[in-house]
Simulated scan of single mutants.
Amino acid sequence: MGGTEHLTVDRHGATLVLTMNRPEAKNALSLPLLVGLYDGWLEADADDTVRSVVLTGAGGDFCAGMDLKALAGKGMEGDAYRDRLKADPDLHWKAMLRHHRPRKPVIAAVEGYCVAGGTEILQGTDIRIAGEGATFGLFEVRRGLFPIGGSTVRLPRQIPRTHALEMLLTGRPYGAGEAARIGLVGRVVPDGTALEAALETAERINACGPLAVEAVKASVYETAGLTETEGLAAELERGWPVFDTADAKEGARAFAEKRAPVYRRA
């Protein structure tokens, strides 16, 4: 498994857990963190034994966004990784899920601060679980900045436009309860239990047919910008091949035999 000094990688069964690990800075984005994130997404995609990914943060926070001290000219940590950024100038956008979509489901486990770039990364995840004390928001306009991690495009597609514009234009903080009410997160749990809840959700996903899970995720995103007629046609193209897999036959057989299915990605 990979990882850097600011991003740890662990396995929990078939789940890859990526932990943003810069707690002294509320996991503000650094070059080692971004490189570790991108490598984690690639590792999850390449390893067929990984069926889901959980993204979380160390020290009671998710991510406080870009390191504003670095942006002010004091330099971003991680000179040893600059060759990676030079080789792939798009790496930071891929790390933040702006220009990369993992084929495995990604579950965010949020505690504490998930603001600015943290809320932008959140929009690239599939399922979001937050501790009740979590804080969300896009603070960029308060600093004269632009939320260029994708929020002006993604947020109005994920929550009602009036809520998206209020979040984008006021830069105010949102508590977990309000974030759930407007649809930014799916579930709120007691503080300190978001990771546990995310891992439980991941286990439910892991018990399903992996080819089916990945096809369903792909279909949801592929059809998002299509008309209903176009989307339904694309869904058939993505969905019908799943019925011809050995895993589909195993699922039906296991149901008939009243046992847990054993899926082999075949």
Rank of each mutant, 00 (worst) to 15 (best):
A109F: 06
E257V: 12
L232V: 15
A224D: 12
T201W: 01
G131Y: 04
L34P: 00
A72E: 12
G65I: 02
T152G: 01
A179Q: 02
L34Y: 02
P32W: 03
K26E: 14
A218D: 11
T193D: 13
T8E: 10
D45M: 01
K86M: 09
T56G: 01
A254G: 11
D88T: 07
M96E: 04
A254T: 05
E178I: 02
T170V: 08
R84G: 04
G137R: 00
M167K: 02
V141W: 06
G78Q: 02
F146V: 15
G124T: 02
K69N: 10
D83N: 06
L42F: 02
D244Y: 12
G186R: 14
R103S: 13
G13N: 09
R128K: 15
V50K: 07
P261S: 08
G175T: 03
A109C: 12
D90H: 10
R143Q: 15
L211K: 12
T201R: 07
E228W: 09
G137H: 01
Y81W: 10
L68D: 00
L226Y: 11
R143T: 15
G65W: 00
V110Q: 13
V141F: 11
R103T: 14
A202R: 06
V106P: 02
T19H: 07
R22W: 05
E235R: 06
A197P: 07
E230G: 11
R103N: 15
